[in-house]
Nucleic acid binder design. Structure first.
Lengths: 220, 220
DNA sequence: GACCAATTGAACTATCCCGTACAATTGGAA
DNA sequence: TTCCAATTGTACGGGATAGTTCAATTGGTC
């Protein structure tokens, strides 16, 4: 008669296995982001995220505390990315008109290319931006984008190509609205009007329209 | 000795109480709408809706089948309302420029005055407009708004006040984007830029900007 | 008044789902 | 090697949650 071995040869992942906390974090974050983007904060399931990770649910709680902590981390990463994008623009090198056109085009493209970001912002707004408010990593007041626009706008005023009386915030809101809406409301636009804004032709057409609209708004 | 009354005086709601299915439906719908708008589809709780109703949870399932059926009913009502609003506009009576300005102003106001509608549309888009797609009561193709714009646009072309080459869809998308974004993203705008778009002064300023922007877009 | 279909109430269930207890393993410091 | 703190796996608990069961009540019709 053979007794079962006392330790039933519990398999290690590989012969000699190294810990990789950063890798684990990144893996979890990527999966979590996809789940939150797809299902929202309430709709996402921690068990589902864990299952799609190469790690166990225990890790999520170890690294992120709870579901909201995980969501906050996803949100922080998304905002960090767009801040990086914004900083990468060098509008000061361009004449005012071209600067505004370039900014609008890039903003439009960033939104169209990153629907995940757009959906996260939608989800966060459904929650009244409660997590943006409590996050310590997301600097609450981000005025660099506005400052960039102000610099260009004043240059355009000085050169006499822009009309007076505009608020940089207003310019920013217009650019954002024209970039955000097509992506955020893509599904309902398709249902109600039968137009697929994600199709290359429609997207390109809309992009040109956005740039033209913003230029007509600011130019004399 | 007095025996307890055979039926222990189970209290009727009032002396003589009448059934009112339509009232029950309306009551449930109003409460459900508030809950869905506040918490989203996944976040809303049927028990919570039932508790805030003057009826029991049983009624919700009796009249609406399940949670999604209730949500669909809320959505259908919201879309029915904005269709009514759209039909109430009589742009044909106005000269083209004024017609576009009026349409933009009214659309802006409708969104600002009905954040519930805006949030429902956001929520529906998070769910990829799946319920808009399956609803039988919401006519999937709603082209009346587009047709209205096309009529005005062609009138403006004929009179030589509008520039050529625009797509009515594009005009509609621009008006919608400029009306929707301030409301849908109100919370994140406040967090990130410290601006409260719901404040009367900011709202009025933005309204004027939207009208001006659309006019500059379409006019020669 | 009797009967039936529409409506309603109260308690219940099965499942889902977030989070935790506890033990085990690992890497590195001494 | 030894020991400790940082990680990680397994199994489970407790409460929330959508939806149901079953019977009772109601209003209208004959």
């Amino acid at each position: 008669m053979v007794t079962a071995p006392p330790v039933p040869a519990k398999r290690r992942k590989s012969a000699s296995w190294t810990q990789d906390p950063e890798g684990v974090r990144r893996d979890i974050l990527a999966v979590a982001r996809a789940e939150f983007v797809e299902n929202g904060l309430s709709g996402a399931r921690v068990d589902e995220i864990a299952a799609k990770t190469s790690n166990s649910k225990r890790m999520i709680y170890y690294y992120f505390g709870d579901k909201e902590g995980l969501y906050r981390a996803v949100l922080e990463e998304a905002y960090a990315r767009i801040r990086t994008f914004e900083r990468s623009l060098d509008l000061a090198a361009l004449p005012p008109r071209e600067a505004i056109a370039t900014l609008t085009g890039f903003t439009f493209d960033y939104h169209a290319d990153n629907p995940d970001f757009v959906r996260l912002v939608m989800i966060e707004n459904i929650h009244h931006a409660r997590h943006l408010a409590t996050s310590t990593k997301i600097s609450v007041l981000n005025l660099s984008a506005i400052d960039m626009i102000r610099e260009v706008y004043e240059r355009g005023l000085a050169e006499g190509v822009f009309r007076e009386g505009l608020d940089p915030i207003d310019i920013h809101l217009t650019i954002s609205a024209l970039s955000f809406y097509n992506v955020s409301n893509q599904a309902s636009i398709r249902q109600v009007f039968g137009h697929d804004m994600a199709a290359p032709a429609a997207r390109e057409r809309r992009r040109r329209s956005a740039i033209e609209t913003v230029l007509r708004m600011v130019c004399r």
